[in-house]
């Protein structure tokens, strides 16, 4: 006992003398390790982004002209609205498909689970072009999907070149971003909580609604915001499967830069979509706490644009 009461003061008095320089050195070392990434980020991300933002205010002439044009041309806002709608539909349909799928993954045997993960990840591993052309073949007039739809009485539905076709393909491509975050959250839910809920008088359905669903919500928000943000900036799929009449925002940015050489206007659109994205992420952060939104940022940076 005497030894233990005597030791804390010595332990406490030692650090000021010896530990601080060591801690400082450790912090310096940590900074050094971050340096390469930091330089790359500043050089290839922050500076170009600043250039775009500045350009959106100065090119072709200084002022808010580019932004005023965006809000007044009656076209950009419509495209933005369509883009938001498609992203929302892709997110909701993805949730409906992904939630039960992720849930079944938590119940499956390790082998079955590995198969299920693989099935979800296949679109990830296929070349972007192969995937999009495959969808093109599937949804073209007279294609497989149209054939199936006509079997259930929906004949003559055109998908290729429409926002619906684009959303269909995007849903499939983005499914892993939906399923995997939800699965990782669901996997951590103690299934005995469900037994506890039932033992306390709640039916299976009620236990699911009051215990499982709230606990899986961080995964839902994380997956949902991820898919929503990725869908907002999707370019290749709408460019190949869509049409100018159903263009999404990434397509008209491309048209501005490559065909119209209107870099200022394109920059303004880029900033607009960036702001919308940040608002979406901020909202999801509000909903689910910091952790999930950080994860969303992390994966969004490496996403399929």
């Amino acid at each position: 006992m005497p030894a233990s009461t005597a030791s804390p003061p010595t332990a406490a008095s030692a650090p000021p003398a010896g530990r601080r320089p060591a801690a400082r050195r450790r912090r310096a070392a940590a900074l050094l390790l971050l340096l390469p990434a930091l330089i790359a980020l500043i050089l290839f991300f922050v500076l170009p982004l600043l250039d775009i933002i500045i350009g959106s205010f100065t090119d072709p002439e200084p002022g808010l002209g580019n932004y005023l044009a965006l809000f007044s041309d009656g076209y950009t806002l419509r495209v933005l609205g369509r883009t938001l709608l498609v992203a929302l539909i892709v997110t909701l349909v993805g949730l409906l498909l992904g939630y039960p799928y992720a849930y079944m993954m938590t119940l499956a045997s390790p082998t079955t689970r590995a198969v299920m993960v693989t099935v979800v990840l296949v679109p990830f591993w296929t070349s972007m072009m192969a995937r999009n052309f495959a969808w093109m073949v599937l949804i073209q007039d007279g294609g497989v999907v149209q054939g199936i739809l006509s079997l259930v009485g929906l004949s003559g539905v055109t998908l290729l070149g429409t926002a619906t076709g684009v959303a269909l393909s995007m849903t499939q491509v983005l499914l892993p971003f939906m399923v995997l975050p939800m699965f990782s959250v669901m996997q951590q839910i103690d299934r005995r909580l469900l037994l506890a809920g039932q033992s306390l008088g709640a039916s299976r359905l009620s236990t699911f609604r009051k215990v499982y669903l709230p606990l899986s919500l961080p995964g839902v928000i994380s997956g949902g915001s991820l898919v929503f943000v990725l869908a907002l900036g999707f370019y290749v799929t709408p460019a190949l499967l869509g049409s100018p009449q159903s263009a999404l925002i990434a397509q008209i940015i491309s048209v501005r830069t490559r065909d119209l050489l209107d870099f200022g206007g394109a920059g303004a659109m880029g900033v607009l979509i960036l702001v919308v994205t940040l608002i979406a992420l901020g909202a999801s952060r509000r909903l689910a706490g910091t952790g999930t939104a950080v994860a969303a940022h992390a994966v969004a940076a490496g996403g399929d644009r």
């Binding site: 103690d190 037994l195 039932q198 008088g201 009620s206």
Partner: peptide
């Protein structure tokens, strides 16, 4: 079913929500 048996149950893992 369990929820109609009306037994209290205490688990090793506490199982608090």
């Amino acid at each position: 079913p369990p929820h109609r048996r009306a037994f209290g149950m205490v688990f090793q893992s506490y199982a608090l929500f």
